[in-house]
Design a protein around this nucleic acid. Structure first.
Lengths: 239, 239
DNA sequence: CACACTAACTTGTCATAACAAGTTGCGAAT
DNA sequence: ATTCGCAACTTGTTATGACAAGTTAGTGTG
């Protein structure tokens, strides 16, 4: 079991493999991952590579590390990683999240209902805007509006996003990977509009996130606004 | 300028130095830090050490890195890091945050108004509880209740926390450093009690965080609840 | 003058090596 | 049977070296 020489760094490949294994239950919460040296042997890489992969898993809360003991798999939690670099889909245990497209992606002028500066080039290119509703265990919990600059994304508006990950589509078809970003968080009363999608009665407190994502394509950013009904669920993160 | 051989790892020392330099304005937003090789030479360490320090600064949003260019100092933002591993005090630009102690630290039985499990040992030891109000530019914005297990913290209740950092006191006097943690975030209506401290009228949406901190002392955790008035400010983070 | 190329930077990735520090289990001594 | 201590693990830290990949500024050509 070794890693080929495509363009993807080895530590990234190993990260994906281990994340999948944890997601599939091959390692259960409380279990130890194979030791760093064991992973080195299994995948024919060296410790710096393995440690980079493990540090990514650590940063996103999938494992904890304890010196002298090992890498301990953490229990899956609703919303883990939604505050970190993961997309909404990747931050939920597989199967718990359903996505319903409310407004299909459509090219339009920018609507500045989010609070980040965009560049002139982004503004002139126009905006691809879509909105999606997210259901956790059948309950509508999140409403998400995504704005992407309309730069070199052929056929984007024709793709299906029903129950599929935006991050996955950007990565697979356009080789755009999310490298980081920033977010703003606050609390506000639900509006009638929001009520329709996440079932929070108008006036009830709702969690609001605005995110700016940076990507592997230079100067290409995109922006999402998320409204979250936190009456019965909360967002969770590790640090 | 070299780093001595005390117990603190070199990458940690370099991290602190660079964080201070950025905080003091020696490097301004948009500036490049010295290159990795230059830092190696200046502090007589090697690249893995420098890169570990820079990665910590990156994770907490103080810098961004760009391949081929360098490490770019980021603008200071209100609340940066409050969602990450930094304490409230360390996550604000120096001078903007004032702390007022509402209830001095006091030993008492645990009050489970927070939503984390604690161990039997923690429960039996009792709890040191304190509450503080945080003012940003003179405006009361945050109300913070801290619960620590009463285990081997001599003279803790006699110390002054007025305008001082809990993280700093734990580190300086008890050699307890925060190594990580988890948090839950949701939105709820302000109560009369909360209204007194952060000026949000009862019923208005308020941001609520509950944090569990893990420390360098094995099995020692502490817990904070934070209420935040987000009418005019928001919390911000990077990822 | 405008453009293309190159050299000299930067960070990113990865291999190899050694020792420190924390954890665990086993075997010997009590 | 219990305890102690050591050996064999684990991750943490740090050094050295090499090459890949992205940026920038200057150089030379058209």
């Amino acid at each position: 079991m070794l890693l080929s020489d495509n363009g993807i760094p080895q530590h990234r490949q190993l990260y994906e493999i281990l994340k999948d294994h944890i997601g599939q239950g091959l390692y259960k919460p409380g279990d130890l991952l194979p030791s760093e040296n064991a992973l080195c042997a299994t995948y024919s890489v060296t410790r710096p590579t393995v440690r980079q992969a493990l540090n990514s898993l650590l940063a996103e809360g999938f494992i904890k590390k304890q010196q002298g003991k090992g890498s301990i798999v953490q229990p899956k939690r609703i919303g883990i990683g939604i505050l970190s670099i993961l997309g909404t889909t990747d931050s939920m245990p597989p199967g718990t999240l359903k996505t319903r497209v409310v407004d299909k992606p459509k090219v339009m002028p920018w609507i500045f209902d989010f609070d980040f500066e965009i560049t002139k080039e982004e503004e002139q290119s126009g905006c691809i805007r879509m909105s999606r509703q997210r259901l956790v265990n059948g309950n509508p919990l999140l409403f998400e509006v995504t704005n992407l600059p309309n730069i070199n994304l052929p056929r984007f508006c024709n793709r299906s996003f029903e129950n599929r990950s935006l991050f996955g589509i950007l990565s697979k078809y356009y080789d755009i990977k999310v490298t980081g970003g920033e977010q703003k968080i606050w609390s506000l009363p639900a509006t009638k509009e929001i009520n329709k999608y996440i079932g929070a009665k108008p006036g009830e407190p709702v969690l609001h996130l605005q995110k700016k994502y940076e990507t592997s394509r230079p100067f290409y950013h995109f922006y999402t606004s998320i409204w979250c009904n936190t009456e019965n669920y909360y967002l969770m993160g590790t640090f």
